[in-house]
């Protein structure tokens, strides 16, 4: 034993233990950190692709308009022209991908239409609103209004 470590052997051994711990940590880190980590920043780069490939549910109106050209024609110039089809009909990507099946259920207009058109002071002035109980106490809204071109002339 050299003079340098005289009376200090325990400290050398303890330092050795720490060194073993640090080496084990470095190996563990190399082994466990996901390979794509740090590709773009301090995160797992592969997460971007995973999030981008999550399933969709809404097809988007352009997909609807590919087939439903008659509705496109009906809606032309109507106040509802700019509304997304699935806003009323619900998410229909599965329908679009399967080429028309399953057929979606028609929405219940008594429930749907008042969400936008029941009178409320909170809605913008000038937005068409009705007190539903006065305007039409019963029956489907669609009995009078064509939802794709609702204006009754």
């Amino acid at each position: 034993m050299s003079d340098l470590f005289k009376n200090k052997v325990h400290l050398v051994r303890m330092a050795g233990l720490f060194l073993v711990g640090i080496v084990a940590f470095v190996i563990l880190r190399w082994w466990m950190v996901p390979k794509s980590f740090g590709e773009y920043g301090h995160y797992r780069g592969a997460a971007l692709g995973e999030i981008a490939s999550l399933p969709m549910h809404y097809a988007g109106r352009a997909a609807c308009e590919e087939c439903h050209t008659d509705i496109v024609a009906q809606r032309k110039g109507s106040p509802h022209e700019q509304i997304g089809c699935e806003t009323c009909h619900g998410p229909l990507l599965a329908h679009a991908e399967a080429g028309g099946e399953p057929k979606p259920a028609l929405p219940d207009s008594r429930q749907l239409c008042p969400r936008c058109h029941s009178a409320s002071p909170y809605r913008p002035k000038g937005f068409p609103q009705v007190v539903v109980a006065d305007h039409a106490p019963e029956g489907q809204c669609t009995a009078c209004h064509n939802p794709h071109a609702p204006k009754i002339s």
Binding site: N7, V9, R13
Partner: peptide, 8 residues
């Protein structure tokens, strides 16, 4: 004691 008994 890390098997070191020097307590001089």
């Amino acid at each position: 004691a890390l098997w070191y008994d020097n307590i001089s």
